[in-house]
Amino acid sequence: MPNNIEQKIRDEARRLLTEKVVDVVVGYEEGTLPLLAAPCFITAPEEVDRLIFDASCKQNLAGYVHALIIEHRKSQARVKPEDKTEKTVAVIARGCTSRSIVIHLQERQYERENVVIIGVPCQGYIDKNKLSDKASGKEILAGKLDGDQVVIETAAGESRFPLEEVLAGSCLTCAWPNPVISDFMAGEEVAPRTTEDEFALVERFAAQDENQRWAYFEAEMNKCMRCYACRNVCPSCYCPTCFADQSQPEWVGAGINPSDNQVFQIMRMFHMAGRCVDCGSCVEVCAEGVDLRTFLKKLDYDDLKLYDHRAGVDLEKPSPLASFREDDPEEFILEP
């Protein structure tokens, strides 16, 4: 039984596809595992009933929008100029997805006309690690959402707990649950969460001793097996050739040296300066459960404290590394 938002998404998607406004609708569909929706690409009006939207829809879809448009452009490289076509993509966008789209637009990746944003108010999604803790690490055989409760079934039996307890970290402090730009809004806007200060995490970590911080960083990065899932899922990671794949120069060694893991993660995160929307997709896809958010949030923190900027919130405000001011703070400059 589709909920109210789902019904609106489906109606709008059907209209867009029937009227041929868009070529494809990127959304979420029921996945093969319980409480884990999968991204889907709808190209025919009769398929729109596959679309769903609830707390099991996790991943930021903006990366697919970028990939679809850019790949289409590449495929047109040898087409005569008068026969060239543009791809128009509709996307189901919550707050973070829409902010990623704003970043793409700011970085001139595609035009606003290439994308139709079906906005959805978002109450957060389920964190797979927290859910797994609730199931005591046992395999979840079935699961469903029941209002603000989650019901899961494992070999040990059925258990029920509030959704709030398994929401992802970035959702618990989300200040932009509603899309910042949208063409159509499916449902009423919801209030942002203000239960915890979003930077409390950074301040707690920074308050620790230097060697403790390093020990934590080292331990977390030692878990990393460099599968690059975090990079692949990230909508802001769209370079045609990633530094991690370059061999001349070889920025990151190919071996299993812990130092290469650290350097890879430092540089990937550094590339997120002023561009991370804290959607939590990298944390969600990480197979080893590396705590990336503690570190990524620091860049967000500096972005706000030093340059009074928030990633992807305002289309008119350029990202901090794409702009400068004469009187930028420079306390770190040595003056002997």
Binding site: A206, W214, I266, F295, P320, L321, F332
Partner: peptide
Amino acid sequence: RKFAFLENFLNYI
């Protein structure tokens, strides 16, 4: 700006 981000980030970790 790049250096400010990098310096802060390296100190943070």
